[in-house]
Design a protein around this nucleic acid. Structure first.
Lengths: 209, 209
DNA sequence: TTATTTATGTACCAGTCCGCATAATAATCA
DNA sequence: TGATTATTATGCGGACTGGTACATAAATAA
């Protein structure tokens, strides 16, 4: 951010790069089970360096969460407005999410929010807010996406269908973390997209009675 | 279990009753964030007593998981075979699950497996096995349930639809833990059941081509 | 150079973690 | 009664927890 070099001793590591390593650690074990020593070992930095750069453990986790949410948005959302029909839009959306869940791994880590942070909503109100905010953002994006392909739907129907479409994502996230293989989830993503698109079609046809 | 009174000093607490308190603690905070002191405080027992009765922390968690799975079965499964049609069967199924998720609370704890244990699959292989086993059992029960109401479906279709129906449960579980209110989830359960039933109908009609 | 600012590494803190050794207690069995 | 068996409470140990104080190092500004 600062164009001019700052005063003082320059940081020896790239803050964003290290945040990705922090994110991965939290992603594997979750917030509570990940210690600062784990983070220190994974990043090669000492605890004081981590604290100076990111704040305490909770703040590190929230920063990792925010980065993850950004990656989800970057990978999944574009497909929602780049397809010819709702079904392929949703399939692209789910595929984008699965790409994040799996990365380059054979065994997925799943969704950091739905399969990790969700466990800590009983312990930390900030995490709880982040999780519910993510759900709302997801529902909102899907409502908008569905509405753009089926403008004849009224708001309530679009919202209701979006909540189903979001559920299909939670389905993928949970199964990915539980160990299902990518090809099985690809198939599930396809049937999910078809299912939602079919439901939208049925809802459109039935409505206006 | 022992009909005849055992030798030695009798246990001062009811093992099953205390297990429910242990379960609740794990349910609130998850495995990693729950300490033995938390369990000790919640049960009124000392750590050695807990160890003697249930084994170590992981074993306590696995016992709690098993109890939870039993409660889910008891509350949700009967509806699958006690309705006139698939849609109401599924709605009863989802309602039974929501009853467990909420208990007598206004704020649900969600599903212990899908919103708590899932975070620890990266740390403990036994927990991972329990989670994937739960998913398989759920899929199996729903496959069977769907097949009983739509016997014309072939096995692959029934399985595929069951995976969608399971996903709707994960949807409910996640949202419940994220803080959504019961009435919103009741509505979601109803629309979920309706759309799965609709998908089954569409799949039945389309098939045999 | 000298002063200032920031990052790093060592070392440590007080508290908590899980687990257990020990001894006292309370029941049955002989 | 005495021996046996099991549960209880006390208390500790050793490792680990998140977090920080302090001295050192490395940069810029004057």
């Amino acid at each position: 951010m600062p164009v001019r070099p700052t005063r003082g001793r320059p940081r020896k590591f790239d803050k964003e790069e290290v945040l990705q390593k922090i994110l991965k650690e939290f992603w594997i074990r979750g917030f509570a089970a990940t210690s600062l020593d784990d983070l220190s070992a994974a990043t090669g930095l000492t605890r004081p360096s981590l604290y100076a750069a990111y704040g305490n453990k909770t703040q590190m986790y929230l920063a990792a969460l925010q980065s993850f949410v950004g990656q989800m948005s970057d990978n999944a959302l574009p497909a929602l407005s780049a397809a010819d029909d709702l079904q392929s839009a949703l399939e692209g959306f789910y595929q984008g999410a699965l790409n994040v869940y799996f990365g380059s791994r054979k065994q997925a880590l799943g969704c950091l929010v739905f399969t990790t942070a969700i466990a800590d909503v009983g312990s930390d109100t900030q995490i709880k807010k982040a999780v519910s905010g993510f759900v709302e953002g997801l529902d909102g994006a899907l409502t908008q996406g569905i509405h753009s392909y089926a403008p004849q739907l009224d708001a309530a129907h679009a919202q209701s269908l979006a909540r189903l479409a979001s559920g299909m994502l939670m389905n993928l996230a949970t199964r990915a973390r539980a160990g299902e293989k990518r090809d099985a989830l690809d198939e599930l993503a396809a049937t999910s997209a078809a299912f939602v698109a079919q439901a939208v079609g049925a809802s459109s046809g039935r409505k206006k009675a």
